[in-house]
Design a protein around this nucleic acid. Structure first.
Lengths: 142, 142
DNA sequence: CTTCTATTCATTGTATACAATTAAATTTTG
DNA sequence: CAAAATTTAATTGTATACAATGAATAGAAG
């Protein structure tokens, strides 16, 4: 017989496995990312730059679902490491343009092994992974 | 034609929608949790206590996938609010026992509406939600 | 042209997360 | 039993996240 408060049980929540799983994935990433000296947030920022070569902070924030409060310190770290450059746009001084450096491009070669190694650590087959992917984006795009 | 570096695109990652989706869900929770004055982490800790009435920090950490470094400040906050009590175990002084108070039990009555309201905010039907749930726990239990 | 508004990023303050270390209590071992 | 190893929380240090605010620039309106 269902109790009134059963909805409040952790096991009946969808939010909780989502929250826990996201942390778990980042935890599995850690040893791989340690090898190239990046944190997870730095890594996903670099992923955008490896693809786009150049983006504004605003665009980067839209891709990553992060705001300048989070991105500013992350980008300053990546600049310190020499992987990116941060320059104000000539056309609009409000805009900060982030550009991939040679060194940042080099890092890509080391990072390319990571997704495959990560894939082996996740207990889903191809079909399940695609389904999960689709459902997550269905929530994200709503 | 697939490029060598395509695996590094954000859109080809499973980890990223997981990470973004978890944050998105917490963001959707915020206005509901604001009404009862809890953060998301405080909320999931209370969910365990609403069910168990009493747990050690270690047990709580196992349920929530969190360590004492995260839980200690969260539990001190909940104690300040009067929803829990923190006492050392008589049998084993190393163990800290967290107990739900009357006030904490009262809070449950206000919280019980939240899961239903959240359900309406997530763009999945029953079947999809069950599938997502199953896949997430498959990863978590691996 | 000038004031008002909007945009973009940085800063501030609060709250997680988690690795690594510390401290205290308990258990195991020789 | 006494020393060593283990267990449990708390603490410390680093890195996110994000709301709210601030500061500078750009655009719109009169």
């Amino acid at each position: 017989m269902a109790e009134t408060y059963d909805v409040l049980k952790l096991e009946n929540q969808l939010c909780f496995p989502l929250y826990a799983c996201a942390k778990e994935i980042v935890r599995i990433y850690r040893p791989f990312l340690d090898e190239i000296g990046l944190t997870y947030t730095q890594y996903i920022a670099m992923m955008v730059l490896w693809e786009k070569k150049q983006v504004s902070v605003k665009e980067l924030g839209e891709f990553l679902y992060l705001d300048s409060g989070t991105l500013t310190p992350v980008l300053k770290k990546l600049e310190q490491k020499g992987y990116i450059k941060r320059c104000r746009s000539k056309e609009d001084e409000r805009v900060l343009i982030v550009t991939l450096t040679e060194s940042g491009e080099e890092l890509k070669k080391q990072a390319v092994e990571i997704p495959t190694q990560m894939g082996k650590c996740v207990a889903l087959d191809e079909e399940e992974a695609r389904t999960l992917y689709r459902l997550l984006y269905k929530i994200l795009n709503a």
